[in-house]
C-alpha cells in the first residue's frame, strides 16, 4: 500500500494541473473594470460583429506586449440582447486571453461614448480616457494597416508621454445597438 500512494498523489497532481490549465483557457468574465498599474484598455465587441475578428491577432500581440507592463485589457459586450452564452462562445472563438465584461445596461458604452465595435478606449489608472478610437485603419486599406492607432497610443502611455492622437473618429465597424426601436446614428451619417 505504501508503494501505491505516491502514484495516487502523482495522478492527483496531474489532474489538478490539468484543471488549472483548462480553467485558465476558459474565457473569464470580469465583474468590474480594474485598471492595472499603467491603466486599462477596453475593447468594445459584439458577438455578431465580424469586424473584431479581423483584429484578433493584433490585439493578442498588444496584450502580450503591454500586459506585462501594467496595462489590463478587457473586452466589453455592450449590445442589447447579449447573453453570457453568446458572449462566451464568441469570445472563446476569438481565442483572446483577457477577461470580458458584460455591459448589460450599456453603462460603459455610454460613459466612454462607444458607438462601434470594435472601438477601443485606453484609460489611465484613474479611468480617465487617454485614447478613444479604432484599433487600426486596416478596414480602409483592404486589410493593410497604415495607422496602428491603439498600438501607438499604448507606446505613448507606457513611455509616459501624451498620446499623439487621443481621439480618432471611427469609420467602419458595427454599430452598438442599445435601442431596437430606433436606429443609432454614427458620426458619418450625421450630415
Amino acid at each position: 500500500m505504501r508503494r501505491v500512494w505516491p502514484a495516487w498523489v502523482a495522478i492527483l497532481l496531474v489532474f489538478l494541473t490539468g484543471t488549472i490549465v483548462v480553467a485558465k483557457e476558459k474565457p473569464h468574465r470580469a465583474k468590474s473594470i480594474i485598471p492595472g498599474s499603467k491603466g486599462a484598455v477596453l475593447i468594445f465587441v459584439a458577438s455578431l460583429c465580424p469586424c473584431t475578428d479581423a483584429h484578433r491577432v493584433m490585439v493578442d500581440n498588444l496584450l502580450e506586449q503591454a500586459g506585462p507592463e501594467g496595462i489590463k485589457f478587457y473586452a466589453v459586450f455592450s449590445n442589447l440582447g447579449e447573453t453570457e452564452e453568446r458572449a462566451e462562445y464568441f469570445y472563446r472563438n476569438l481565442g483572446w486571453k483577457m477577461p470580458y465584461y458584460l455591459d448589460s445596461d450599456g453603462e460603459l458604452a455610454k460613459r466612454y461614448k462607444a458607438t462601434r465595435t470594435p472601438q477601443t478606449v485606453a484609460l489611465d489608472r484613474a479611468k480617465k480616457t487617454l485614447y478613444t478610437g479604432p484599433i487600426d485603419d486596416s478596414n480602409l486599406h483592404q486589410g493593410r494597416v497604415e495607422n496602428a492607432y491603439l498600438k501607438n497610443a499604448l507606446e505613448d502611455i507606457l513611455a509616459g508621454r501624451p498620446v499623439r492622437h487621443p481621439e480618432v473618429s471611427q469609420m467602419g465597424g458595427c454599430w452598438i445597438v442599445r435601442d431596437t426601436t430606433s436606429v443609432p446614428c454614427p458620426p458619418e451619417l450625421q450630415k
Binding site: G173, C174, W175, I176, V183
Partner: peptide, 12 residues
C-alpha cells in the same frame, strides 16, 4: 443592415 437591428447589429 440598419433595417434589421433586432437580428444583428448594423455593420459594413
Amino acid at each position: 443592415s440598419d433595417q434589421t437591428i433586432k437580428l444583428s447589429p448594423p455593420m459594413p
